[in-house]
Design a protein around this nucleic acid. Sequence first.
DNA 1: GGTTTTAAATGAATGTCGTTCATTTACTAG
DNA 2: CTAGTAAATGAACGACATTCATTTAAAACC
Lengths: 227, 227
Amino acid sequence: MNVKQEPGSPAREPRRRAGRPRSVVLDRELIAQAALKLVTTGGYASLTMSGVAKSLSVSPSALYNHVESKQELMQWIQEIVMDGVDSTVFETLPLAEALMAWAVTYRDVLAGHAPLIPLIAVLPVSGSPHTLEMYEKVAAGFARAGWESAQIVPAIVAIESFIFGSALDVTAPLDIFDPGPNAGKIPKFESALAAQRASGQPSADAAFNTGLRAIVGGLVGSGDRRH
Amino acid sequence: MNVKQEPGSPAREPRRRAGRPRSVVLDRELIAQAALKLVTTGGYASLTMSGVAKSLSVSPSALYNHVESKQELMQWIQEIVMDGVDSTVFETLPLAEALMAWAVTYRDVLAGHAPLIPLIAVLPVSGSPHTLEMYEKVAAGFARAGWESAQIVPAIVAIESFIFGSALDVTAPLDIFDPGPNAGKIPKFESALAAQRASGQPSADAAFNTGLRAIVGGLVGSGDRRH
DNA sequence: GGTTTTAAATGAATGTCGTTCATTTACTAG
DNA sequence: CTAGTAAATGAACGACATTCATTTAAAACC
């Protein structure tokens, strides 16, 4: 904070230089937090540049002095959200259990941010140091379990894909599989549906548990991927 | 076509009643196909109501006599797209192989329509008879393999979640995992990345193959889900 | 065959967005 | 004190989805 500023390298923490008598100067952190609060209270439909600006008592165009686009703002949100994923489990648990614990927090974190998923799936990780650290911990977990190098990234991406898809499912309506007017024409599926419903568990949760056990078991269980 | 129309029940196939000297009357099928062609040639960014209207030589507002919203139009596209998934494999192949063949076509079909995935994941199937038929065939495949009723739907949804996530991955840039300025700080992940890259296979494809084998193997392989 | 009904098209208009830009403001540096 | 500059303003723009009053022409009715 109170470090002498070298002439050649400008401050990373910009000093107060407002264009108006304003309580606080806009800032990446402020904007990101305001956006996140907006999303948390009103969902992604309420995430508009005007909305963020209003919540900061600022004009919409003021935001563009700090953020390039709404897309970039969503990347900021994504970074904060991804920070909620617990990847310390790989340091303490055996690989299979760590993967399952990690996947659970990962899905839970994403479930509330479904609109971010298509973004995250496609976003270069270079911009998100936290995410890279997460991958490092996961990769270290695989390596520690004796996995061959070349198999690690595909395994991680595979589980992640399952997590992304499962997080999308969480927001689906509970009666998504109601056959409606086609009832009766699809007996096998309908009886399967009825049986699953009898369990009382939302099908998204049941599917996540089932699938997670299967994919982790299928990856870690069979032993021919070690070197 | 030339069936006498009963007074009480209006025609399901609307006769030509245009408001202008027009070569063809608008129609759900026409609009859906025009929209699909637009998407195929220009991607989802080019899917606008004006664009669809223009490709039909019609004013944008004319579309709203036939479709309620852009959202509904996208549901029409989704139905056509989902029709490209081959679920006949369940009638000829053993469950595990059928699941893998089905998943491959399913992912390939979705890969070109990533923006539809969040929609499909949440859309009630009652509006899509084709999709329901697909589920029927898949469920029949599980039943034929001796699966207990209550386990079938979770298993289907689990694989589907993996497919959705994998289809999202397909559109990711090849260098999505480039650590950028953080190179060197994440040694385990970087060496895993290098090893995977050496294989020459895009990581999305490697992950899909790896994950599909794992999840199908994990589901079908262990025998305690049969009754 | 003329009249009425009606589905379907028009185009002007609306409201909501994200984003740009010329201009102004007030803090900082010299 | 002066010049420079980061940061804010608000007006404006261009997309876009959607609505609505009005018009058109085919079909139904007699």
